[in-house]
Design a binder for these strands. Structure first.
Lengths: 141, 141
DNA sequence: ATAACTCATTAGTCTTGCTAATGAAATAAG
DNA sequence: CTTATTTCATTAGCAAGACTAATGAGTTAT
């Protein structure tokens, strides 16, 4: 593997990281940490998870995730339920409030982008949309 | 402002956030938290800052930044120096080790992108590079 | 000289990352 | 069926990072 990245890669890294940092500031509840929101987003996108599954998905230890879930439960955004298929497991799912809060954040972020897309030319807009698809592919590679 | 984002915005949000999340996992020192690395990156990009300046840039309180800087100083990545123009201020700057670590991370991230760019067509590659420039603009708007 | 402001630091609290330990439930082995 | 092992969530202890409140030193204004 080469250690000599070219300018394209540098430009792309900067563009992606800067824009993402800006986007991540757009949240419907600014009291939530990034980690907390990430858990909610995962549940929103993929549905209920076991606590261990969440820990694995977020790449943290189960005790850490238990801590995070405790706070989210306290905020009324998630609830715990016993897994009917395995008495050791705990299923975590979004409450209606949690679902609503994530949805509002998604809308807020999309609106943020949408507003700024209006200042772009149709070509620039299409460039971004095309790039988005490519980025999605890269992220899962 | 409309509350009805369209599909373009959604695609862009997902592409950017997913790819950035993947990129942020590439670090030369995996013991560093995102917040710690962000401070180092700021110093790398803009040079020495006052502690208060760093706090403002990272949008945290000065005591929080003091804590973070304490850890980074302990890791040998930053050093404190009195500001010659104002006896109250503390200037934070990268040590050679800190500078080296950030540089290695930048290289690592660019290499990660570069490797994957090779699997793209020239058109796709150009799309991404063009998009990067647009994203940089959006992020600063 | 004094008052007001600026700056970094400490203390206390809560959250989140870790590892170690624990107990309950499930599975495998005898 | 009993016992041993594995799986899972939870608690405890520690360190780091977010906050606010308080403090002391340095600077500026009056």
């Amino acid at each position: 593997m080469t250690i000599d990245p070219n300018l394209d890669a540098t430009q792309i890294r900067q563009g992606v990281l800067h824009l993402s940092r800006r986007l991540r500031a757009e949240k419907a509840d600014n009291e939530l940490s990034d980690g907390q929101f990430s858990v909610l987003a995962c549940l929103y996108r993929h549905g209920a998870h076991t606590l261990g599954g969440l820990a694995e998905h977020e790449r943290v230890s189960p005790p850490s995730m238990n801590r995070t879930v405790n706070c989210l439960e306290g905020s009324g955004y998630v609830e715990r339920a016993a897994d009917p298929t395995d008495g050791r497991r705990v299923l975590i799912s979004l409450t209606p409030e949690g679902h609503d809060m994530v949805a509002r954040t998604v809308v807020q972020r999309d609106a943020w982008i949408d507003t700024r897309l209006r200042d772009l030319s149709p070509e620039e807009r299409e460039t971004l949309t095309r790039a988005a698809e490519i980025m999605r592919r890269l992220a899962t590679a």
